[in-house]
Simulated scan of single mutants.
Amino acid sequence: MLADFDAQPGRVVPPSPDLSPTQREADEAELYAGLRGVAGIVAGGGGAMDLLRDVAEFAAQAIPGAEGVGIALIDPQHGLSSVRTWVATAVLVQEIDTVQYSELHEGPCITCMESRRPTVSGSLGSDSRWPHFGGRVARMRMHSALALPLLVGDQVIGSINAYAKSRDAFADHAVQLGSQFAKPAAVSIYNAQLLATAHEQTLRLQRALDSRSVIDQAVGIIRSRTGGNADDAFERLTQISQSENVKLHTVAERLVDEAARRARARHR
């Protein structure tokens, strides 16, 4: 079955050599090794960046012909304009994707995320879809590209971007295996993002609770010294914060630390 992808318009691609059963088995073994790796990395409990690096390495292993792979992600709050490559298996891939996203705003990875279909180019320098990007990358001695959208349901969260120096490096077989890899990779990346977001929200909540606790302690200290009520004490803290241009919780921490030092001194 042919892979469903967007090929380079007008380019007559040389017929792919028939792969021997041994070569097909080897390619499929590489794919399954990558899939097993992707399945295990979220459960491994590493950070989001470590997971992305692993996915890039597994993708380079799973996609026949890939000489360098990058993982690009979209900030869901800002859409496609926010896309950038977070990790890459080669410095040149990072440079290519920086040109694509930050400078020229055209290229196979952007196209694949817009179309939600794999995008292939066998000769970037003559690809009419990206007249500025194609020539620029060809001068960097990279001639083939395979961009695979990372899809979770109807949502595009990014892309896997594979490059090769030779022309027509990514035949139908490579697109099929790459597409098989991209589906579970997208889920793993999405789950890792959810975990990272939940962790950050937990930290923010804990910081807010800690800050509230310190402010309450400072209010109690001021009340014990002045005999005023809680509103008066909080107003006093706010006035100090504004007059010194210091955050409220910092003023509260300073007051609590000072009270603790005085208590220790009295004990001695």
Rank of each mutant, 00 (worst) to 15 (best):
A59D: 03
I96Q: 00
G158S: 03
E253V: 12
H199P: 00
R139W: 01
V152H: 13
Q77K: 08
D6I: 15
V187H: 05
A252P: 03
V91C: 00
L195M: 08
W130K: 06
L52I: 00
P21N: 00
V69T: 13
G65R: 01
A145K: 03
D154W: 11
T250F: 06
L35A: 01
R129G: 10
A43V: 05
A186H: 01
K183T: 15
F58C: 03
A56P: 14
E28H: 13
E95H: 11
D231Y: 02
R139K: 09
L148Q: 02
Q176F: 07
R117M: 13
F181G: 07
G40I: 01
P64S: 08
R84Q: 13
D75M: 02
T119N: 10
V214L: 05
N191Y: 04
F181H: 09
L177K: 08
V69E: 06
S188K: 05
L31M: 02
R36H: 14
F170N: 05
V93G: 01
A26L: 11
V87M: 05
V152P: 14
E30A: 15
A265N: 12
P131T: 11
P76I: 08
V93A: 10
G10Q: 00
R225F: 01
I240V: 15
E25T: 12
L148C: 03
I110Q: 04
L255I: 13
S102M: 07
Q77E: 12
G227C: 07
L80N: 04
D210C: 05
G178D: 13
I71Y: 00
V152N: 13
C112V: 14
W86H: 12
F58A: 10
I189G: 07
D50C: 02
M49C: 00
P108C: 04
Y101A: 04
F234R: 15
R236I: 08
L195S: 03
D168R: 03
A147F: 02
A192Y: 00
A60Y: 00
Q77C: 00
S102E: 13
G46Q: 13
V219L: 13
A182D: 08
A138S: 11
F234I: 03
E258C: 07
E253W: 10
V13E: 07
V187N: 03
S102H: 11
D172C: 05
I157D: 09
I240Y: 12
V251K: 05
F234N: 12
G122Q: 09
D154K: 14
T89V: 07
Q61A: 07
A48C: 08
Q100I: 06
A164R: 07
E253D: 15
N161K: 04
I157F: 10
A169K: 02
S126R: 10
M1L: 13
A56D: 10
H173P: 06
S213Y: 06
D4T: 06
V38I: 15
A252Q: 03
G79D: 02
A174H: 08
C112L: 04
